[in-house]
Design a protein around this nucleic acid. Structure first.
Lengths: 161, 161
DNA sequence: CGATCAGACTTAGATAGCTAAGTATTTTAT
DNA sequence: ATAAAATACTTAGCTATCTAAGTCTGATCG
């Protein structure tokens, strides 16, 4: 029992991927919010708008999946966006359980204004980091997300343990 | 105007660090919550407990900084933890603006139960990734956090733009 | 055909984060 | 010495997320 294991047991924030991902997420979110506020938008809209620019007419479930949020979160967000006239929700005629979401001209128009912000934020974040290291980070983040999603599913399956 | 520039302009989620950090954060958070729920705790407590295990007696402001949350968030969390008997808050006698936060025996005792979970979650996340790539990711995440924090400060300083 | 199961959306209520503004205390600068 | 500024905490109220449970619609199976 030297003192080194003790230090290791503490799992200091600097050495914890979970902590650093959390910190980085909040940093991104703050800047994104600051930028969107200048366009008069709340930050939550961004992710849904982007999904719709790629897949206009997607169902709410699909949009939730694309954004990695739950369906109630998507419902709340889309209702707010509907209220602002950014999107329209239309009940699907063939399968009346579904609701398809379409951009209004106003929602479509935000694309030109917002995309440069997103590109800029990513550029600022990556300043001083080599392209190669950024690629590695991107790849590791995806892998970790997948690993953790699998673990979450495992935990949900095993009710007691 | 070929079709390639268009694709690039879309900044697809797969290529966006902001998006991947967000997704990874949510994945970590879900697993952490699932684990803590088994100990009867809400996930927000984890970060404050860990900070106190390292710096028992820290002020609320210090705890907020250590966790990268705002002071109101810290206040709310610490009040809840106080209510559960995990911590005690004592007004500082020398500078009565400050409140020092101390772990109760009960809060101290959670350390043994919770730390293994955190270590395990980090281990699961990093499965199948080389130690070297994990180091790179850690380093890039810290750098991006710093870059974005500086940008946030810049944006706050420049009220109009 | 009818009952049950599954799917997509919704509602209700909780949690954790934020900003903006307020209070009490200490420090700084006339 | 006192007015002004800064600091630490708090309050109030908003946003985005979650889980659990409910409603309607469609699919399956005896």
């Amino acid at each position: 029992m030297t003192d080194l294991p003790d230090i290791a047991d503490e799992l200091p924030p600097d050495r914890s991927l979970g902590f650093q991902v959390r910190r980085c997420h909040r940093a991104f979110d703050r800047v994104l919010n600051a930028q969107l506020a200048r366009e008069g938008l709340a930050s939550g809209f961004w992710y849904f708008l982007r999904a719709l620019w790629q897949e206009n007419g997607a169902t709410q479930k699909r949009l939730a999946q694309l954004n990695n949020v739950t369906e109630p979160t998507a419902v709340a967000m889309l209702r707010a966006m509907d209220g602002l006239g950014l999107i329209e929700r239309v009940r699907n005629a063939e399968d009346r359980r579904k609701v398809n979401v379409f951009l209004t001209p106003r929602g479509e128009a935000l694309r030109g204004a917002l995309t440069p912000h997103a590109r800029r934020i990513n550029a600022v974040a990556g300043e001083g980091v080599s392209a190669r290291d950024l690629e590695t980070c991107l790849r590791v983040l995806k892998k970790m997300s997948d690993n953790l999603a699998a673990e979450a599913a495992r935990l949900a399956d095993a009710p007691l343990r």
